Amino acid sequence: MPSRFTRSTCSSCSGSCASADARPTHSGNKDRRTTMNIDRAVLAFAGMMVLASVALVYFVSPWWLLLTAFVGLNLLQSSVTGFCPAAMVFRKLGLPGGCAFK
């Protein structure tokens, strides 16, 4: 008896996507490019700041954990209010809006 979830093959994932009706879960277009938008830029910037603060904690001082706390609180605050200073900077730099920061 065939399984309800079957593996499908497509050119962009080498057959690793699975769906209920044996169709690829994405377009399969190899030439598609993912553009950087404000949402991705904010997440990338926050991730870089957290990694930088971890390195600073290890090599300089444990007080750099305050930077990690600040980044985390800012992410939490922006998820509730929709206001993010980094998103405003990225918008002025010309990045297109995403789903969260339009």
Rank of each mutant, 00 (worst) to 15 (best):
45 F>L: 15
22 A>V: 03
101 F>E: 13
1 M>S: 15
59 F>G: 04
35 T>E: 10
85 P>W: 14
10 C>P: 01
61 S>R: 05
9 T>S: 12
60 V>D: 05
69 A>L: 15
19 S>E: 02
48 M>C: 07
44 A>N: 08
89 V>H: 11
9 T>F: 10
76 L>S: 08
79 S>H: 10
19 S>N: 07
28 G>P: 01
15 G>I: 06
71 V>D: 05
35 T>A: 12
55 A>Y: 11
24 P>F: 06
65 L>T: 11
52 A>R: 06
100 A>K: 14
58 Y>G: 07
8 S>H: 10
54 V>P: 00
94 G>V: 02
14 S>T: 08
23 R>H: 09
32 R>P: 00
4 R>F: 13
83 F>C: 06
65 L>Q: 04
30 K>D: 05
31 D>E: 11
27 S>M: 07
3 S>Y: 09
28 G>W: 02
96 P>I: 10
85 P>V: 10
5 F>R: 13
68 T>G: 12
31 D>C: 03
94 G>Q: 01
100 A>R: 12
44 A>M: 10
50 V>Y: 00
57 V>K: 01
9 T>K: 13
43 L>S: 08
21 D>S: 12
55 A>Q: 10
41 A>F: 02
75 L>A: 03
42 V>W: 03
23 R>K: 14
37 N>K: 08
1 M>D: 11
96 P>M: 10
74 N>F: 01
94 G>H: 01
92 K>C: 07
16 S>V: 09
42 V>S: 03
81 T>P: 04
65 L>C: 07
101 F>G: 13
87 A>Q: 03
65 L>H: 01
60 V>S: 11
25 T>G: 11
88 M>L: 13
